[in-house]
Design a protein around this nucleic acid. Structure first.
Lengths: 344, 344
DNA sequence: TCCTGTCGCTAATACGTATTAGCTATTTAT
DNA sequence: ATAAATAGCTAATACGTATTAGCGACAGGA
């Protein structure tokens, strides 16, 4: 119980009747140095190591080698406390999978308290060889410092330049959104609305960009650049504008609108098509399968982790990767009914 | 890009015109030593630190202090690869929550490859101050070594002695199982069956123990000490024995039996009651709410983490805690129909 | 004037490992 | 027999920090 002082190479050396240096050489000598230690000695040392169960202290190892085979995972929004869990989980799975395949362990930064700062007094992050950063909204000052600094990192999700290009793996939301717009148009929709922010986080901007690029001037009948507005208000605006199809960035808004519409006797998608920009975890539990696109969260996380390892091990140059987002058919996008059309 | 060599205290010292020791004292001096550094000097050093954005290398820190504020998480069964994810997730959430509250970060041991050994060549575990161990089935040799060693750890789930008492936080399955048996008996069940292993992992043994303690000799009509047997075979045996109620350890078995029973025109719970010993994640998705008991996974993980910190920080003695498992009403346990009773 | 004490700082060391330079004893070449 | 080479090891050092012992300068008291 009384913390029997950890074994060190010195102890092993003493037991085997050699020097500490010899123990270290036995443990991880190059072929060159190995050839200079006779099998007899090596076996004697190895036996002591086996018997005692000695393992090298990874801290001391990192001290001298500089590398740890540990990757940090930092999240801006507090990631775990149940609420956000569903957002974080698939990313974590992807990171873990890639890390395991590459022989790395993960250091989960809990952000000790509320701070959520990379550069604090307690920057334990640097214990890792590099770091994956998650979160919708980054602190741009910190991001700039990271870019300027020498600590390897990769962001999950596209990031604008911050005093230099940011290495990232993101979802290619713009074309995915455009594709859904095209699909709506091919169904015959000519009066389309947009509900969601159009500025702020990169992911938001990308969606709006993809949307506005694909939709014609005449077709965009109204936009509500906010989220969480009362659904009945939204619906009033949509109907007043004569929209037959609405693009929504937030699943909760979509659910609320769908509810409100049904309670007014409107049919989805006949009277109103709803498209959600990006799938959400547990989406299957909301009852309705919204037309949307798939965000390849695990694949993003895997790719980011692999990129990070490339940067750590080979000092690879900055890469920026956007992964394709597959459209999800769903059942909330259909041809506008003629009734609705005339109602306009 | 060219890894601009990390700042050290020596650099700071040079810039501030003091010695490395002074920098260290400014950073984390005791009140005693602080009083011996005039405000002027301290401010000068602090300014340089602010300007350069220097942060102490946590590795070197751990080297000398011995502690890291990092907790390891080791899982025997490979934890992440999606399949097992649901088992692992609630535990991880609990650990993370407690770790965050206590100001610790988490080191997730990926087990690099298939090995899943604590004592391997690559035991990076010891970088942490202590370790939480998860998994249904432990390697007993390793457990014994852990118990004998001086590295603080806590198991999630009860563990038999391994050359000494194992510190753990588990679920109190035996009384939870007994309570369900009592409940079945109070419904009038007198012909009860058991399906599941009765030896092996501690959690399995506890369930069987709790069951056999509460059920009378005469009431246990049949037992099948295996899992995953074809449901129709099981059902034949149950009906032949005239069982009115069956206790099942594995959810999959319960689901299969329920299916098979319904396709034979039997009604659950009228013709056959089914009790599952322990709730399962995503249980709500299987359609039927099985009568069972709740395993407080997050609470177990939290408690284990807190216990671990006690051991790390205060060298606290071994504790063994079993948390209460609340019964889950469900709808698969009811009074046996008189028809079934006579059928016997 | 000399002794004592305090202030403000620094030199030195430990932590556990990896690694290089180099030492001693033995063998080989001449 | 002597020089050169080689085998088999070890001493020494670096990594970056925390911490203790203690040094020099100056102040105050006798």
């Amino acid at each position: 119980m009384a913390a029997a002082k950890r074994l060190t190479q010195k102890d092993i050396a003493q037991l085997a009747g050699v020097s500490q240096a010899t123990v270290s050489l036995v443990l991880n000598g190059t072929p060159l140095s190995h050839s200079r230690i006779p099998a007899e000695t090596r076996e004697r040392v190895e036996k002591v190591i086996r018997d005692t169960g000695y393992v090298a202290d990874p801290v001391a190892r990192k001290m001298v080698k500089g590398l740890n085979r540990i990757l940090g995972v930092f999240t801006y929004e507090p990631a775990f406390p149940s609420g956000q869990a569903d957002f974080f989980t698939p990313f974590l799975f992807g990171i873990e999978e890639a890390a395991q395949a590459l022989g790395y362990d993960l250091l989960l930064l809990t952000g000790a308290g509320q701070q959520r700062k990379i550069f604090g007094d307690n920057v334990r992050l640097r214990l890792a060889d590099g770091c994956v950063i998650l979160g919708r909204k980054f602190d741009n000052t910190e991001l700039a410092r990271l870019v300027a600094g020498d600590f390897p990192f990769v962001a999950v999700g596209r990031r604008d330049d911050a005093g230099g290009p940011v290495p990232y793996v993101g979802g290619d939301y713009a074309p995915a959104t455009s594709a859904l717009v095209e699909r709506a148009k091919s169904f015959g929709h000519r009066r389309i609305a947009y509900i969601g922010l159009n500025e702020g986080a990169e992911s938001t901007v990308d969606r709006w960009y993809g949307f506005s690029r694909a939709v014609g001037e005449a077709e965009l009948v109204t936009s509500i650049f906010e989220v969480g507005r009362p659904p009945n208000e939204i619906l009033d605006i949509l109907l007043a504008a004569g929209a037959t199809c609405v693009f929504v960035t937030e699943l909760v808004d979509a659910i609320a609108i769908e509810h409100a519409a049904r309670s007014r006797g409107l049919s989805i998608p006949d009277d109103l098509s709803i498209v959600v920009l990006g799938n959400h975890i547990r989406a299957e539990e909301v009852g309705r399968r919204f037309t949307s696109f798939a965000i390849p969260r695990e694949a993003m996380a895997r790719a980011a982790t692999e990129m990070l390892v490339r940067r750590v091990e080979h000092d690879a140059p900055v890469e920026q990767i956007l992964l394709h987002c597959e459209p999800l058919e769903g059942d909330t996008l259909g041809a506008p009914s003629s009734k609705t059309k005339k109602t306009k």
